[in-house]
Write a protein that binds this DNA or RNA. Structure first.
Length: 213
DNA sequence: AAGAGGATGAACT
DNA sequence: GTTCATCCTCTTG
């Protein structure tokens, strides 16, 4: 194996700057190893959610419920919740225990195990909508809500993230408002905390340009 | 106990 | 462009 490729250690996730980490995750490789079925992909799109001052965050204002409990776990914990009653969302918790920050993985570019991904998605041939959305990539990687609370950095983890040889330069990172922020969120909705790799065809949807006037 | 709405996706026209 | 499938979580009463 390439010496430059290794599983991200627990320390990687401990920064309190979740916005910075959301950019750092671009180009990293997420791998699932479920009952011998190995699938992987390059992270090409992320969104940062920063409790408690971010109204877009489930843990806004320090909200602590059965669901948000996972967000307060130590950085490197997997946060999976179900959206719209059916779509699993794969998030990476960051920061020290007690800080409710997380990064939503919104799109990946498939690397290995494409046949397995296709099977999980009930598709017959690969095209970008295999993994160009948070629910889609979670299903293709076999991520379920049962993985909520598991750790990314342990050797036996069924899901983990590696650094590869892909270098994403700042100039190749596009940022914009996060997807799905309701108008009620107010100023937080405009925080440009969605990041993706410029011109990458596997990104969920192109940035919608907002004209202020 | 009930109801609203959501960090979506698929299937339509 | 639109609709709706489908259900969990949170809020309210």
């Amino acid at each position: 194996m390439d010496q430059n490729v290794h599983v991200l250690p627990q320390t990687f996730y401990q920064s309190t700057d979740v916005v910075h980490l959301a950019k750092q995750l671009l180009g990293k490789i997420v791998i699932s190893d479920i009952e011998g079925k190995i699938t992987s992909g390059i992270i090409v799109e992320t969104e940062a959610y920063r409790g408690p001052d971010d109204k877009g965050c489930h843990a806004y204002g320090g909200r602590y419920t059965e669901r948000t409990r996972t967000m307060y776990a130590i950085g490197g914990t997997v946060y999976v919740y179900i959206c719209y009653g059916m779509h699993p969302m794969f998030n990476v918790v960051t920061g020290p225990e007690g800080d409710a920050h997380a990064i939503l993985i919104r799109a990946i570019e498939p690397l290995n195990g494409a046949e397995i991904m296709l099977e999980r998605r009930n598709m017959s041939f690969a095209k970008t909508d295999l993994t160009n959305g948070p629910g889609k990539l979670a299903v293709s990687l076999g991520i379920t809500k049962e993985m909520n609370g598991s750790l990314l950095y342990e050797k036996e983890s069924t899901i983990y993230i590696k650094s590869g040889n892909i270098v994403v330069e700042e100039k190749d990172i596009v940022s914009g408002p996060r997807v799905g922020m309701s108008v009620h969120v107010g100023p937080c909705a405009h925080r440009p905390w969605r990041f993706y790799i410029r011109d990458n065809p596997w990104v969920s949807k192109p940035l919608v340009v907002n004209y202020k006037w």
